[in-house]
Design a protein around this nucleic acid. Structure first.
Lengths: 197, 197
DNA sequence: GCCAATTTGTACCGATTAGTACACAATTTA
DNA sequence: TAAATTGTGTACTAATCGGTACAAATTGGC
């Protein structure tokens, strides 16, 4: 790539978005002030509004997509690489019960966005919902394959089971805030995964 | 009650809190401006800050408690009056799939509060969580009785089943925003209630 | 009718916030 | 080295918001 005239950027955009995402996850969209975001990102207003002309909202949208990209791809790769994809999905849930306490308090980034953007920005809410449904789509594929291969004997419609998993995911994102206890969460998750036998 | 000197209130506090609650439910706490709240309540700033010295936050806390009082009591009474309490609980969930589309968009008032108040006011978040756990407590009592009477044959620990129901409730409060379709919601709810057999 | 008590409407305020303007700095190209 | 281009830091702004001050209004008690 040919070098372009002009002063070079002093920051890496990906890293900066990731740092902003951590602030948004902790505080939500509205409560995260640009001041605190800039402090976490380590850049000034000049650089910020040049890199993100849409301001705070553009930044947030980019954190949502970058977050989804990272987490979804990670699960998709685990699933693709495994001989027992369904077990990978189960582990994806079981891992919730091994998280640090402060992780429980934050819930699910996409779920939080669906809740908060309900009125603030319906288009973005729908977009976050679409990303959650993409997760459901992955569950669906795995379940369907597991049924075809006989690894999953439960004959319930795969679409319905996938929807069950997404609802479980969303439910846990709230319930886990109420139970700080990982042992209790583990029991709960196992109970709800029992249908995948 | 002996009449006290002074100009009488022109509004009913219960009704005013209920109208404010509808605004909060639609917009969330932060996005609901006092201006819009006052317009919905039909009172002026003078009356407002006299009746609610704590301002917006006190008003919100009162909407949360009044809402919980109304909805929880209603379910508790249905359960107490029924010969098959467990069926009442199931209907409580099934009724979600008969709600109007705009009801789906708003989710659960207490669940939304748990999400939004995570950082804005941890004490209030905890309080809302406590109220949700009170709902779980009701589920627990009903399940325990149903197991004792033989109406529920599933031997799983009642505490765990109750927690499952609360997680289902919380999950639906987000998932229902993603599926506008009541028929699909009905299928989903039935699947998740199947464990109560 | 007059006073004390209470409620109501309105004008105002201080703080915060997202965003803009613009001068200055750093780099490439010619 | 000079010009063009791009990035950075800072001072400023316009708007919004929750909350306060206070005078006017309405009632009961005497």
């Amino acid at each position: 790539m040919r070098a372009v005239a002009g002063r070079p950027k002093l920051f890496d955009e990906y890293a900066v978005i990731e740092r902003a995402q951590r602030v948004f996850w902790r505080l939500g969209y509205a409560a995260a002030s640009t001041e605190e975001l800039l402090a976490a990102m380590g850049i000034g207003k000049g650089s910020f509004y040049l890199a993100f002309p849409g301001g705070k909202k553009e930044l947030f949208v980019k954190t949502v997509h970058q977050f989804h990209q990272a987490t979804f791809q990670q699960l998709a790769q685990r699933v693709a690489a495994s001989a027992q994809p369904l077990e990978e999905v189960k582990d994806y849930f079981r891992r919730i019960a091994t998280a640090a306490p402060d992780a429980h308090e934050k819930g699910c980034y996409l779920g939080n966005t669906v809740v908060e953007m309900s009125v603030l920005d319906p288009a973005l809410q729908q977009e976050s919902g679409r990303l959650l449904l993409q997760l459901e789509g992955l569950f669906f594929t795995v379940i369907q394959q597991a049924q075809a291969s006989g690894q999953l004997t439960n004959p319930t419609d795969a679409r319905l089971l996938a929807r069950h998993l997404l609802t479980l995911w969303n439910g846990l994102s709230i319930t886990r805030r109420l139970y700080p206890d990982n042992a209790q969460l583990h029991e709960l998750i196992d109970l709800q995964l029992a249908v995948l036998h």
